[in-house]
Design a protein around this nucleic acid. Sequence first.
DNA 1: CAAATATACTACTAATTTAGTAGGAATTAA
DNA 2: TTAATTCCTACTAAATTAGTAGTATATTTG
Lengths: 148, 148
Amino acid sequence: MLPKKTKYAIKALTALAVVYFDKKPLRISQIAETEKIPRKFLEAILLELKNQGFVGSKMGATGGYYLAKHPEEIMLSHIIRSTGGPIALLPCVSLNYYEKCNECKDEITCGLRDVVLEVREASLKILSKTSLTDVILREKRLLRKNMK
Amino acid sequence: MLPKKTKYAIKALTALAVVYFDKKPLRISQIAETEKIPRKFLEAILLELKNQGFVGSKMGATGGYYLAKHPEEIMLSHIIRSTGGPIALLPCVSLNYYEKCNECKDEITCGLRDVVLEVREASLKILSKTSLTDVILREKRLLRKNMK
DNA sequence: CAAATATACTACTAATTTAGTAGGAATTAA
DNA sequence: TTAATTCCTACTAAATTAGTAGTATATTTG
Ligand code: FES
Ligand code: FES
């Protein structure tokens, strides 16, 4: 399961992606309100996202946050990895959080690892191809479908 | 990430699957030793697996555990769900641990949910088709490949 | 310049989950 | 009857998650 932090990050970044072309920053409190994210928590999350280069910020009155990259360049896999941790089911198949399985005799011949590797590949295939723009597009598509 | 409990469960059940046709039970301590699982923890796990119908047991001297079903019938998805929890990345797309996303206005039109649903489908496709027998087969294949 | 309004940053805390452990009761084989 | 084993209840300790409090710093506007 993804931690709330990751979910909040995706939600906040998506909100920023929606207004990307306005070229005006969005206030934390504004995002917190519309996305129903605890204000202070979101503050911490956005700060982290800034340090990782996802967003930029402007201090002071009329300040706020804005996407630092084009929304098509920001993939869900990046956000997940930056905020939540591994996508893989086990540390021994995680690209970014690798850790040796000290119970298993041999990683190379471990049957379980082989399966879990396949699962990671399948998940990553989707998550690394889905950008913030795609999330917004999906939302629009679902809205149309539901309207009919 | 899968909890250790789940990993241990899969490992233990696989060990039982290997000797399935011997028709003799395997002792906890034996499994714990060969799979490097903390003895007492494994005890608790196997008991739970028994209550869920995965294994049977025999008490007393010469007692132990054995698979209650054919190893081809036990899928990784079953074990994960019984011991670890959801396979889905978010509660709103979990079949067995469903919980409403109270931040999102509408589940039906949520773009993030749509992506995460696709990921769950992809993972489940693999995990619900992979049995204990398959895990053993993969292991054998990997061994052969590595020998050459 | 001063007041108002933002983010930046440090340092906690509280609740939950995970990964176990301890110890004895019940059962069975020899 | 004794040795070996599972069964069962009740803890505990460590790590992680989900936040909060409070203050410093920067920026706009009157
Ligand atoms: S090596 Fe990681 S599960 Fe076996
Ligand atoms: S409804 Fe679950 S993420 Fe939006």
